[in-house]
Amino acid sequence: MKARIKFSKTGSMRFIGHLDVMRYFQKAFRRADIALSCSQGFSPHQLMSFASPLGIGLSSDAEYLDIVLEDGESVDGFVPRLNAVMNDEIRVKGFTLLEESSKTSMAVLAACDYLVTVKKGKDSFLLDIPGRREAVKELLAQDSIEICKKTKRSEKIVDIRENIYQITDSLQEFEAFTGISYGTAALDPVEYSPVLYMQLTAGSVVNIKPELVIEALCRQAGEEYGWLSYQIHRMEMYADMDAVKGEVHTMSSATPCRLVPLSEYGRNEDFLRHKETVPKKN
């Protein structure tokens, strides 16, 4: 029985790496006595996969984990049951059963929303409202935004202009664009001053990290990019309803993309009675 979990990762849990989050969930499922289907062999492991690893230091309100439930026994009351054995800084925010034919969230991931904040006590030209608006306008006016993308294996120059679906300093504008009401982010606005919201291409083919966009803005402003000054917070992850296999949607693509949050993609409609509810923190 395929299912998808949406969870947040904040506070001190920002320092827990992706593989450790995986181990954390494996243990949490066992504590909650939620049986997951396992791989075969002498060291069977629970079947689970994440939509997209979150880098160390980043926080999120919308991480997605796909699992395969052994049976329907745990479906009722799934969220409170799992949250009861979790810590305060990784919380399950949603649970949905998927169609058995649905692809993994990793395979369908098309875009992510990010909030960029400046940490308390840090300086950044983005703290200045007219300044950052001007900077964004100038950035988007360019035909191409070339950035050096470093991976473990190589360095290459990529143009990220077409992969910035939206960038603004206004939450209202961003909500109007994405059609999502985000509510309050799990970030203390005293510690972290919001400066920009952005929606970027994500997924296994092309994945644009928000750091690259900040870096481009800094370079354009002739400022040094101090990565420690910023707290980046993931707000949502999307699948593209009209995705074409192997193609990446860009701003100039012929077919517009139709993004839906991963929590709504591939959902088993018989499961509507278990509609996502945001549980109260206990």
Binding site: Q26, K27, A28, F29, R30, R31, D33, V85
Partner: peptide
Amino acid sequence: MLRSTGHD
């Protein structure tokens, strides 16, 4: 202990 830790 297995229940409270979730160790495998």
